[in-house]
Amino acid sequence: MLRKLLPFFAALLLFGRPAAQAQSIYSATDPLAHTFSIVARDPKTGEMAVAVQSHWFSVGTSVSWGEAGVGVVATQSFTNKSFGLRGLALLKSGKSAQQALDELLAADEAREVRQVAILDNQGRVATHTGKKCVDMAGHQQGAQFSVQANMMLNATVWGAMAKAYEANAALPLAERVLAALDAAQAAGGDIRGRQSAALLVVRGTTTEGPWADRLVDLRVDDADRPLVELRRLLKLHRAYDHMNAGDLAVEKNDMPTAIQEYQAAEKMFPQNLEMKYWHAITLANKQQVPAALALLKPIFRQEPNWRVLTERLPKVGLLTVSPAELKQILALK
């Protein structure tokens, strides 16, 4: 029913135009991502982030866009998804955030129902809140960040976001932008409620491995408390950062660092058996079988399939213990 009404709703918003004319301006396939979001850059690391929550399914697939070494874009309200890729392309061509935004809006007849924020790799921000965005709507810019919101319960939301972001300067960028989203929700948030959220953090400069340039890329597409779930996922992401650091330390034969990193990960998620398991396998491969046995025993008790997996590892070189040591491991009760 909502989709059927979109052309008429668009007509009402777009200066009283007839519905048939409004259809050419607003596409019924575009998402109604009325929401609050933040774009920001960490001046110390150069990292750039865009984070969002909305009462709309899978908001991260519509609102948040970013590219390492280029910038980030949040496009919302009556969302023009093309603003994401086109905005980044304009930044990549050498345009400033404001120049990119001006060019996007100049070509868009529906600019007054759009809300857009662009941040470039120098920390310059440009923001637009159309006159026909649903109240309460507004934005606020600060040093290398912008917060923006529409269809909010009240007009304090974006101010609360800015205040929270500025008050948490000591946090890593990902945690800092989440603090802004939490503040928005606490101030009233989306008048319709909440459903999905997303967080994207990209490097300030590109590397030879583009797959590593997205430092954090997390989405909660449908949840009762999406920000709570997004924080849980970010914590899990940080734990696996420790696991990866431990693996790198093993490659360098730096066992004290490896153990420290593995333990840090396990402390964050003590219920995660896989973290403990690969820690144990690493210890076994480094001739620390007694320590490995101590970790593996409760794992095998809780989930017998890990024992079955252990039998398969020597064949592919992932477990390099002697036959006698393997027998000892598999005999754990």
Rank of each mutant, 00 (worst) to 15 (best):
R17E: 10
M268S: 05
L309F: 11
L171P: 06
A258R: 02
L215Y: 01
Q195S: 02
H139V: 05
L283G: 00
R307Y: 01
F15D: 15
Q195V: 05
R114W: 12
Q76I: 01
H279V: 05
H279Q: 10
S93G: 09
Q185I: 03
P172S: 10
L326W: 12
Q53G: 08
G193Q: 07
I281G: 00
D102I: 06
P270D: 14
A117G: 09
L91D: 11
V228Q: 15
Q195H: 10
V157K: 00
G193Y: 12
M152R: 02
K327G: 12
A68N: 03
R203T: 12
T206N: 06
A249Q: 04
T207Y: 08
D213K: 09
G16P: 04
K4D: 15
R232D: 12
F15A: 08
A155V: 00
Q115E: 12
M275I: 08
I118A: 03
L2M: 15
E303K: 06
L218T: 13
R114E: 03
M48L: 07
I25V: 13
Y240H: 10
V321Y: 14
R194G: 02
D30I: 03
A264K: 15
A291V: 03
K81H: 07
Q328C: 03
L273H: 04
N80V: 07
R214V: 07
K297M: 09
E166R: 00
R307K: 08
A160L: 00
N272A: 11
A169P: 06
E311Y: 15
A137S: 07
L181D: 05
R238W: 05
A212I: 06
S58I: 10
T320K: 15
K267V: 04
L153G: 10
M243W: 15
F8H: 14
A100Y: 11
T257I: 01
K4Q: 14
L227V: 04
L283T: 07
S196H: 13
T282V: 03
